[in-house]
Amino acid sequence: MSVIFLKGLAVLGFIAVSAMFSIWLERKISAWIQNRMGPMMTGFHGTLQPVADTIKLLLKEDIVPKGVDFLSWWLAPFFVTVPVVMAFLVIPFSSKWIALDLNVGVLYVCSVTSICVLGIFMAGWGSNNKYSLLGGMRSAAQIISYEVPLLLSVLLVVMQSGTMSMQGIVAAQEHGWFILKPHLTLAFLIYFISATAEVNRVPFDIPEAESELVAGYHTEYSGMKFAMFFVAEYTNMFIISAIATTLFLGGWQGPFLPGLVWFLLKSYGLVAFLMWMRWTLPRVRMDQMMSFAWKVLTPMALLNLLISGWFMVK
């Protein structure tokens, strides 16, 4: 009992620190790409800036706009944040560091993160604001559409390794990462593009497009509630990178360094790649994004599944 409790505390601590570090990393990378300095004043090269930001968010007034739908408005931040915490249950940080190695691990992550859609919907609906509603609608449509190719590409990994347990999939990659096999390289690309859309990152961040929707579904939130959306977003980024690492990049396996270090290196490498994409690519239009999911990614994922399934059975 107390062990589970300690594991939960460890996960919460990790999420807080990871989100703070990711925000600092994002600001530094954006500054580097745009030829600026980024945060420099607080601590060494601005490393204490996220701490200051957190204190600021904690002390801010929690504004409740007039006419909000109270139930959905209050519950939405929790519906977005809690599934993200739950997903950490099965992430294998190293051979021993995994809270619980469920035998349906991959499916578990996909299912708990699908709860986030409801939270986004609730935030958009409950805020009583047309920009929030539009953002929530767009985001939900996008997440549902990209979930199809995402699950199909994850399925291919499950077929290859013959197990859904996270540690089992890592063990199956002992003699070569899955990304090195041609059909799984394609699956990795489909997974990563869909996952980028799932977490509303550029080039698929039309639900939060500042130029037309203010800030999308979290426009009306302030203080700690806004911080919860922010933490969920950055932790989601870490989760999709961690899943990609586990499914395609050999998980915690690697020479010389301990497993935990390898896992964090690979995961944060992918997080940095996502940030690099954000500050490089332009935003795509809503209709382009939806047709890309349904007309390109989904058929490609299905075809990939069919062809490689054929070869696996033969």
Binding site: L107, C110, S111, V112, S114, I115, L118, A140, I144
Partner: peptide, 20 residues
């Protein structure tokens, strides 16, 4: 756990979202 996971994936992630 398999049943639970499928319950969340299909009902909460799929059907309730369609309802909404």
């Amino acid at each position: 756990p398999f049943l639970g996971v499928i319950q969340i994936l299909v009902y909460v992630g799929g059907i309730i979202t369609l309802f909404v």
